[in-house]
Amino acid sequence: MSDSAIRVRDVSKTFAQGAAAVRALAGVDLDIDCGELMLLMGPSGSGKTTLLSIMGCMLRPCRGSVSILGEEVTGLSERDLPRVRRDWIGFVFQGFNLFPTLTAVDNVGLAFDLRGLPRRQASRRATELLEQVDLGDKRDAFPADLSGGQKQRVAIARAIAGDPWVVLADEPTASLDTRSGRVVMKLLRGLAHDRGRAIVIVTHDNRLLEYADRIVQIEDGSIVSDSASAGGAGERSVHS
């Protein structure tokens, strides 16, 4: 397998806005390695979420290519893209995006259901994942009965249900208090450092810098800086 979990080459994206065209990304090159926790930072409208959507195979670039685990995905058909998202990528959203009608265990189990696992087996594995995120006692709780931090941990459990090599997180701590944010970030960092997953986090939050191995700054659709994080690198060396 390629060392780069994600390879982005010369990616550009332009959106039509009425008669005008808005350039969201302009020739972005980026490699994200397995075992790396990368923060993608920048002001609002800089193109962070667009880049995340393209890396997550939710949006097609106007130009350039994206490879995941060595496979070029830009040219895949709409029929093939769900498989890529399901098998290789886990998503964590700012608003958690849990299903309010399902309990915690069923929310996680849904990810196994998508993979065709029988219900009982899906439920057992979902329970194991909830225990991993320290929510074993909340397996039958509905999202409405969970705190923000608990919801995000359920979402992380769902994201890693398919054991993906890549986890893409959009402002995962934005709706959380400091303590819950810390718990969530430790979980994500553990995924990168202990299990070798590539974690990309879009954030505005400078408090997350201490967890990062690498910080990529993006402005006006272009990467303006790409540097290793001292704190993250330190943490990483401890785990590796």
Binding site: R79, F99, A111, L114, A159
Partner: peptide, 14 residues
């Protein structure tokens, strides 16, 4: 609709 969008995002086929 938002829940279906989430399903699509996490890999549900049409």
């Amino acid at each position: 609709i938002r829940e279906y969008a989430t399903l699509k995002a996490i890999g549900a086929s049409n």
